[in-house]
Write a protein that binds this DNA or RNA. Structure first.
Length: 573
RNA sequence: GCGGUUGUAGUCUAGUCUGGUUAGGACUUGGGCCUUCCAAGCCUACGACCCGGGUUCAAAUCCCGGCAGCCGCACCA
């Protein structure tokens, strides 16, 4: 299995280690070793290049510990849980709602634990395995709880996603973006979920890294000005419909998917395309990627359309590495209600709209004396009424009877007239919708390693993209002669001065050194040989095809910098 | 969380059943020799019985508990 091989290399060569090993470890935690940490940084740098530099989004950083109120508002305190029940006899643990739905075919999602417990006993539902009695239902919350402050009065949680840290300072962000939609804000960082039983290596971690973008848009503006750039991209879509009728994924082009409504909006589709291009850029080819739409039943409570980007793996099958959701106004609305802050945006219409309304115009000279002290109250009351009700009453009875605090007042046409007035409306306040691409960095790193692994009769190597490979260049003396060693060292040092991570290796034979470099995906090797002493040239070896070219030492720095950043192809040296 | 199963250097493994000398080998890694381009060879060094308790004169080996890995079940807003 490639999984096995790549995880062995990852462990041996310092990409990934399970954490706390000398204390016998703890499931769901991984260390990034020396090469893993560089690889991760390089991938995150690529992501920043994609979302910040090219898309024009801005990054923020918020705390990983959040007070309870914030996560109460987001719904995580109450809903990021599973209702559990346990068989008293065989100790089997179940999801209570699944047991009930299986036993009595009734939709019980969202009911409280107490109610679920009652349903269990009312219907005499027993353990499906042994028929034993089930315990009362309890909520297992996947968040790590902690205490904030010395007195420990305030409950806090480790954040289960970075997204909330973006929603909460929305007012500040809106001001930063000078009040105009759309805008995008990203956050890269750790998130925490206390998984019940994480057992899939780096695929299900209790502490993991997310890179999320929250793109705030006007609800009515879900097109994308640059969509034309992506409209011809091919996407392999596995729509909800195709999942339900078991017809498999289908390749289609992005423009078509928007037109036929497979994907709910242009802007969501844009993010799908962006994800595909990003993955291609870091070395995950399109033929191992598909986009799977959430089924209506699995869609999170906050989303109206959600697509997982999945990568094919030999060990786990298709795994989700990115989720791209239209979260609508769910989060902002909820934070707005809980915090009592106005989290809406004033959206100006292209053209001001004028609307004509019919208003009540009392003749105050008569109105005041008629009602005396009650006049202000009556005035307020009629302003709240539907004008047409008064009109109808006038037409029918010639008078409108108003009941107010037990008193009746008669309004007649001689004191009330009607007036049309025109109002100019320049826009409206709306709570923005949020388009959220959420990248699971650890899973992406695993996918990159997995799909970079190449094994053939002659050798095994990691075909890491040159821009993300942890080590850019290996420098070798062909043989361990002092003069060659010395030159190799100085070349290595100069690469470092030029900002490239370079390593020297003089151990074993030249073949072994190439093999060692190949195993960790070093894209290029520079070899100092006998000819170097004669004419000041060295060879540059290309990892992927083993080809070598001879280049003067003075040129190798610019040549390799250009090779690594993609401005120069190896064949054109 | 439940059941099964397995834990010996960085990796793979012998030894465990049947307790007994200094835990053996291969690969890897470090140093050296050799070597003029793809894991060669030679010399040399470093490196291990998952943790804790118990039984015993003596435990890698037997027993109990824990932890971790793997497999199955369950779980994965």
């Amino acid at each position: 299995m490639t999984d096995n091989k790549i995880m062995n290399i990852a462990k041996k060569r310092g990409f990934l280690w399970s954490s706390f090993e000398i204390y016998s470890g703890s499931a769901g935690f991984f260390d990034y070793g020396p090469l893993g940490a560089i690889l991760k940084n390089n991938i995150i740098e690529k992501w920043r290049d994609c979302f910040i530099t090219r898309e024009g989004f801005y990054e923020i950083e918020s705390p990983t510990i959040m007070p309870e109120e914030a996560l109460k508002a987001s719904g995580h305190v109450d809903h990021f849980t599973d209702p559990m029940t346990e068989c008293k006899d065989c100790m089997e643990v179940y999801r209570a709602d699944h047991i009930i739905e299986g036993a009595i075919d009734k939709e019980v999602e969202g009911l409280e634990d107490q109610r679920l417990t009652e349903i269990l006993s009312e219907n005499q539902i027993r353990c499906p395995k042994c028929g034993g009695h089930l315990t009362h239902v309890w909520s297992y919350n996947l968040m790590f709880q902690t205490l904030i402050g010395t007195k420990g009065k305030k409950t806090g949680y480790m954040r289960p996603e970075t997204a909330q840290g973006i929603f909460i300072p929305f007012k500040r962000l809106l001001r930063f973006f000078r009040g105009k939609l759309p805008f995008g804000v990203v956050q890269i960082g750790k998130a925490y979920r206390n998984e019940i039983s994480p057992r899939q290596g780096v695929i299900r971690l209790r502490e993991f890294t997310q890179a999320e973008a929250e793109i705030f848009v006007a609800p009515s503006m879900k097109n994308h000005p640059k969509f034309a750039n992506f409209a011809d991209d091919t996407l392999r879509l596995f729509s909800a419909e195709n999942q339900l009728n078991k017809s498999g994924s289908k390749k289609t082009n992005a423009g078509k998917a928007v037109k036929d409504g497979t994907i709910s909006s242009e802007i969501l589709t844009y993010q799908l395309c962006l994800a595909a291009r990003f993955l291609n850029d870091i070395g995950i080819p399109s033929d191992v990627i598909r986009f799977r739409q959430h089924l209506p039943t699995e869609m999170a409570h906050y989303a109206i359309d959600c697509w997982d980007v999945e990568v094919e793996t030999d060990r786990f099958g298709w795994i989700e590495i990115i989720g791209i959701a239209d979260r609508t106004d769910f989060d902002l609305k909820s934070h707005s209600i809980h915090s009592k802050e106005d989290l809406s945006v004033f959206i100006e219409y292209d053209e001001p709209r004028s609307i004509t309304t019919l208003g009540v115009k009392p003749d105050m000279k008569k109105f005041g004396p008629s009602f005396k002290g009650a006049a202000p109250k009556i005035l307020a009351a009629i302003n709240d009424l539907d004008v047409s009700d008064i009109q109808t009453a006038f037409n029918k009875d010639g008078v409108f009877k108003l009941e107010l605090e037990g008193n009746f007042y008669e309004l007649s046409p001689d004191i009330i007239s009607f007036e049309k007035h025109e109002e100019i409306i320049r826009g409206e306040k709306v709570i923005p919708h949020v388009i959220e691409p959420s990248y699971g960095i650890d899973r992406i790193i695993y996918s990159v390693l997995l799909h970079s692994y190449i094994e053939n009769e002659d050798r095994t190597y990691l075909k890491l993209e040159k821009q993300i490979a942890p080590i850019g260049i290996s420098v070798f003396p062909l043989v361990n002669k002092d003069d060659l060693v010395e030159i190799a060292h100085s070349i290595r040092d100069e690469f470092r001065n030029q900002g490239i991570i370079a390593e020297y290796d003089g151990s074993g034979t030249i073949g072994r050194r190439y093999a060692r470099a190949d195993e960790i995906g070093v894209p290029f090797a520079v070899t100092v040989d006998h000819e170097t002493l004669e004419n000041q040239t060295v060879t540059i070896r290309n990892r992927d095809d083993l080809k070598q070219v001879r280049v003067p030492i003075k040129d190798i720095y610019s040549v390799l910098i250009n090779l690594i950043n993609g401005r120069l192809e190896f064949e054109n040296i």
